[in-house]
Simulated assay, not measured.
Amino acid sequence: MFFLFGKKKDKAEKKSKETKVEKTLNIEEILQTIESEKAKLESLSGKERIECLNKLGSLYFQAEKISEAIEMYETSLEENKELGKAYTDLLKLYNIKRKEASDSKDEDQVKMYMDKINSLMQLSKDVIRGKA
């Protein structure tokens, strides 16, 4: 009976190692896609530029590059004050950074990210009211 449990543990460890390798390969692919999209960004304008910024934000988020994702989404919202993926992902990212700051007991960073969250909440109210 204990022998079976050991086999399950071995399979779980093997699967975990395989998942880490796949994740590393996936991140490499994501980073290549990011470079390709960044090269296009400068030549875009209007809706296409916003879509590219949002795609870059999403790719950085997937690659766990939080600061870069925040930068892309903030730029997107500055250029186009609209609720959508940039808005929702930015809330998630701000909360991640706020939690990191809280865990490291950096009160200034906690306050900064709380202020950013409050600004996003105000943006959503403004958009809903037609003021944005």
Rank of each mutant, 00 (worst) to 15 (best):
Ile128Trp: 02
Asp108Pro: 00
Leu56Arg: 09
Glu74Ala: 10
Ile117Met: 10
Gly130Val: 08
Glu13Asp: 15
Met1Gln: 14
Leu123Gly: 11
Lys116Pro: 00
Glu107Ala: 15
Leu56Met: 05
Thr88Trp: 02
Glu29Met: 00
Leu25Phe: 10
Glu100Thr: 06
Tyr73Arg: 11
Leu56Tyr: 05
Phe3Lys: 12
Ala101Asp: 02
Ser45Glu: 12
Glu28Tyr: 11
Glu28Asn: 13
Glu100Arg: 12
Leu59Asn: 05
Ala39Trp: 00
Phe5Trp: 10
Lys55Met: 04
Ile66Phe: 08
Thr75Tyr: 05
Asp126Tyr: 12
Ser16Tyr: 06
Gly46Pro: 02
Lys14Ile: 05
Lys105Cys: 03
Gly6Trp: 08
Tyr73Gly: 06
Lys116Trp: 06
Ser45Pro: 04
Glu37Phe: 09
Phe3Leu: 15
Phe3His: 06
Ser43Trp: 08
Phe3Arg: 08
Gly130Asp: 05
Glu48Thr: 02
Lys38Asp: 03
Gly130Thr: 04
Tyr113Ala: 10
Thr75Phe: 05
Ile27Val: 06
Phe61Arg: 15
Lys14Cys: 00
Glu18Trp: 00
Thr24Asn: 07
Lys40Thr: 04
Glu82His: 04
Tyr87Cys: 04
Leu25Trp: 07
Met72Thr: 03
Ser104Ala: 13
Ile96Phe: 07
Lys111Glu: 15
Gln62Met: 13
Asp89Phe: 03
Leu123Val: 03
Leu93Val: 11
Cys52Asn: 14
Glu42Val: 07
Gly57His: 05
Asn54Val: 07
Lys99Met: 10
Glu29Arg: 04
Ile50Val: 15
Ala63Gln: 06
Thr24Leu: 04
Gly84Thr: 05
Asn54Met: 07
Leu59His: 01
Phe5Gly: 07
Tyr113His: 15
Arg49Trp: 03
Ala101Ser: 09
Asn54Phe: 00
Ile30Tyr: 04
Ser36Met: 10
Ile66Glu: 05
Asp115Arg: 12
Lys105Gly: 02
Ser43Asn: 11
Val127Tyr: 09
Tyr113Arg: 12
Phe3Met: 10
Leu83Glu: 06
Lys7Asp: 09
Tyr60Leu: 15
Thr88Ser: 07
Gln62Cys: 03
Ser67Gln: 14
Leu59Trp: 01
Thr24Gly: 00
Ser67His: 09
Lys131Ser: 14
Asp103Ile: 07
Ile117Pro: 02
Met72Cys: 15
